[in-house]
Write a protein that binds this DNA or RNA. Structure first.
Lengths: 362, 362
DNA sequence: CTGAAAGCGCTTACAG
DNA sequence: CTGAAAGCGCTTACAG
């Protein structure tokens, strides 16, 4: 069994190496003004004692913590996991540590903004996918540390995001171009207003309809959270006097659940209903899901790079924006609506639903 | 635009409140020996100045960082994301910060164990899903801080895990009980030996076969990584002289991809092939996937609680183990093999594949 | 109940 | 190239 032994300090290393603490500090940070001989002895002693410098002590004097904090509504959703991964990979290269604040409900959120635990414990804060209230924004402004907004547009603040409006607009256009005229939009129930993206995607959807001079029908915009909620939202659409022929779903996770609901009702995708997602997460391709791809990991990477730039160069424009592209990936869940299809005919075993031989990738 | 203003120190608060720094420190930590009047003034001043205590400074004197570190091969895989979420939620309650070290490839791994950046920067380290080499284990033992092993059994060290052997054994037994005699096992390609779980699940599979006196056939154990790899692994099975009638897949993500591959070949699940996963991740239910559920988030929570216990109570048994249960969740992707089915007959439109009306959840 | 002082482990001018 | 000394912002005996 391992023994807990006291950790070596710089003074210990100095004693073993036969030099002063100053020299140890300089040698370990690779400063030039150290003789090869002293450097060798210090490195040897440090290794022998398993010495690691205490960031608490060094940060006290340098004023830098060597840490970057991320505030996120979680890490389980595909986008968040990928974004945090991207952040982590860049920080590792910069030898910065990653502090994660997961805030999943309103109580935790209130508590975070009250205590602001990141204050003085990180050199920068990345805020991922939060639709902030004005007071919250002001709290962050008063933090006295660089803040980078991720997956959201923040005027006059550093931010990294994709143009959700443009992405949703091109997705909707894709459906319009296929000949759909009744296009539904399925949104997550977002009581706590965690994400802007959801709202922006709806804006993009509406804009594409406007541009096509296709009437906006409120009854085609439905919301649902969780398995049950999605089933009910789809139920709303299917019970409309004129049901839609296509559903644009806010993200791939919900889109895949929507596919399952439709299949369980015996509705064939895309023959009777087109489904379009947003994200291009790992399962989108195997499921044959048409979607709007966004580079989640790259968003995280760009945000971390931006934070690092602001930290290390105070002259750097602190309101810099990075906007990354989305791309439509048409797969097997979008097709012309039934009335427009050349092969329009009732279902048979030769005309199976999505995921079967004729529709799957490869 | 926000102004970066210098952060207030305890001395600032003391000045504004008209008391000494000691009193500020005591008042802010809620110690009893502070007069109501002094406490009020301190709290007021602290709020006014947006004061937050510097953990760097306090940890230098208390010897505790107020941080717990997690070493993980990522946060994107379902299990890892859920486990980290669980850790985060418990730490938040304890007002401990979460430091995340994502190590995704061999180079980063080597680097982590060389530098050990968590040393002296956290009060405990949680190691998630790593199949450690002896040297790596020794490095962690020498760390001089509590280490909790998550999702892996570590003799004489604190650890939290599910019994993967038992889980895989009961899954395999489920397939045997349905009447399957040719059961394949699909494993991830695991060059870097990141996870023990994979190996243990194979052990459980073999054990169940032995117990049923069902012969172990090496050609039924296949490996593949990524989309392409899974397709090839399934191809191996389908080209066997005697193909399997069921596939036990190492995790749900791969199982869902396997379903997509089978569908794209026109093989109906479960009528022609049963598929069983492991995890019970979010999409398992909507996909109708039969699986072995494991409580990933609870594993994370238990690990964080264990770390907290060891940190705050040095008398606490540092080798405590927490073993959590797995449960078989039979859904729509497992059924008796074709030759044993009462309704054995060729595919028709009335006998659709998984996910269609008769098989889906409600 | 309160404050002055020492000290945690580093880095950084400063002097040599 | 090197070392002694000051100081970063706290907490904690210690004395009152």
């Amino acid at each position: 069994m391992p023994e807990a032994r006291p950790q070596a300090t710089m003074a210990d290393v100095a004693r073993v190496a036969g030099v002063s603490v100053s020299t140890v500090s300089r040698a370990l940070r690779g400063m030039a003004s150290v003789s090869p001989e002293a450097r060798r002895r210090v490195e040897h002693a440090a290794r022998e004692l398993s010495f690691a410098v205490s960031r608490s002590a060094s940060s006290l004097v340098t004023g830098r913590t060597g840490r970057v904090a991320v505030l996120t509504p979680g890490v389980e959703a595909w986008f968040l996991g990928a974004a945090v991964s991207g952040v982590a990979s860049v920080l590792r290269e910069c030898e910065l540590d990653l502090l994660v604040y997961c805030v999943t409900d309103m109580r935790e959120r209130t508590e975070f903004f009250r205590r602001l635990p990141a204050q003085r414990n990180a050199d920068a804060l990345l805020v991922v996918s939060f639709a902030l209230k004005r007071e919250e924004r002001e709290r962050l402004d008063a933090l006295g540390m660089p803040v980078v907004y991720v997956s959201q547009h923040a005027p006059d603040r550093a931010s990294v995001y994709v143009d959700d409006i443009a992405g949703a607009r091109s997705g909707t256009r894709h459906l319009l171009n296929l000949g759909h005229r009744r296009i539904a939009f399925l949104q997550s129930q977002d009581d706590t207003a965690f994400a802007w993206s959801s709202q922006d995607r709806l804006v993009g959807y509406r804009r594409a309809l406007e541009e096509a001079e296709s009437p906006y029908d409120e009854s085609l915009v439905v919301r649902g959270r969780g398995r049950r909620g999605i089933r009910e939202a789809v139920g709303q659409l299917l019970s409309l006097p004129q049901p839609p022929t296509a559903i644009f779903v806010e993200d791939d996770q919900m889109a895949i659940e929507t596919l399952a609901v439709l299949r369980s009702c015996g509705i064939r995708v895309p023959h009777q209903m087109s489904v379009l997602g947003f994200d291009d997460q790992d399962l989108a391709e195997p499921m044959g899901l048409s979607t709007i791809a966004q580079p989640a990991e790259e968003i995280g990477r760009a945000a971390a790079r931006l934070a690092q730039a602001i930290i290390s160069d105070p002259e750097c424009d602190p309101a810099r924006h990075v906007v990354l592209p989305t791309r439509l990936i048409p797969r097997a869940t979008t097709a012309p609506p039934p009335e427009r299809r050349a092969d329009h005919r009732p279902p048979t075993a030769q005309n199976p639903s999505v995921g079967s031989a004729d529709a799957a990738p490869h």
